[in-house]
Simulated scan of single mutants.
Amino acid sequence: MLNELKNVFLAGVGSAAYTYEKAIKLVDEMVQKGKITVDEGKELSEELKRTVKTKTSDESSKPITKEDFRELLKEMDFASKEDFDSLNNRLNSLEEKINKNDAE
């Protein structure tokens, strides 16, 4: 489970980096084709860097806490260890009743 969430997180980081790289390439292509000036290209590149830096230092990119993680799993309707333990206890109780009735 933790591996899957780690992969999702890394995919998000990777896609953000990929998007940034594509945007920089697009700006370079526009400069080469003469659609924008070199100065405008530099300005756009700097704007992209500032935006990425702001987004990464933003409050929303703070490390996730254990409580945040639990809340996220709860919102996603994942079963907790307590849920599994409760179901396991109920299952054991039912098995005992069935075995007791079969023995009679």
Rank of each mutant, 00 (worst) to 15 (best):
S57C: 05
E71M: 06
T56Q: 05
K49V: 13
L10P: 00
K49R: 15
T51Y: 10
G41C: 05
K49S: 14
K35V: 10
E59T: 02
L48R: 13
L94R: 10
K25T: 11
G14Y: 10
E75H: 03
I36R: 02
D28M: 13
V38H: 03
V38I: 08
S86V: 08
N101S: 11
K62V: 02
D85G: 00
D83M: 06
E43V: 06
N7M: 10
S86R: 15
Q32E: 14
E40I: 03
T54H: 05
R70L: 13
E46T: 11
D68Y: 02
S61Y: 02
L26K: 14
V8Y: 05
M76I: 02
K22I: 10
I36V: 14
E67G: 00
D68G: 04
I98S: 05
N7G: 04
E21C: 07
E29H: 11
K53I: 14
S15N: 12
E96A: 14
I98H: 03
F69V: 03
F78R: 07
D68S: 04
M30A: 15
A11S: 14
Y18G: 12
L48P: 01
K35Y: 13
D39Y: 02
E29I: 07
G14C: 11
F78D: 01
M30V: 03
K49Q: 15
T51A: 15
L87Q: 10
V38G: 03
V52W: 04
D102Y: 04
L44P: 00
I24F: 13
Q32P: 00
G14V: 13
T65D: 02
E46N: 15
E47V: 05
A17F: 07
L44Y: 12
N7E: 13
F69K: 02
D77V: 08
Q32L: 12
A79V: 03
Y20D: 04
D39P: 00
V38M: 05
K100M: 06
S86T: 14
K6M: 12
I36N: 03
E95G: 00
R90K: 10
D28Y: 11
E95H: 01
K49D: 15
G14P: 05
F78E: 09
N101L: 15
S60P: 00
L91M: 08
L73R: 06
L2W: 06
V31F: 04
V31S: 07
K66A: 11
A17Q: 07
E71R: 10
K25D: 15
Y18N: 12
D58W: 02
V31Y: 03
I64R: 08
E4W: 08
L26S: 14
K81E: 12
L72C: 04
K62C: 01
V31R: 05
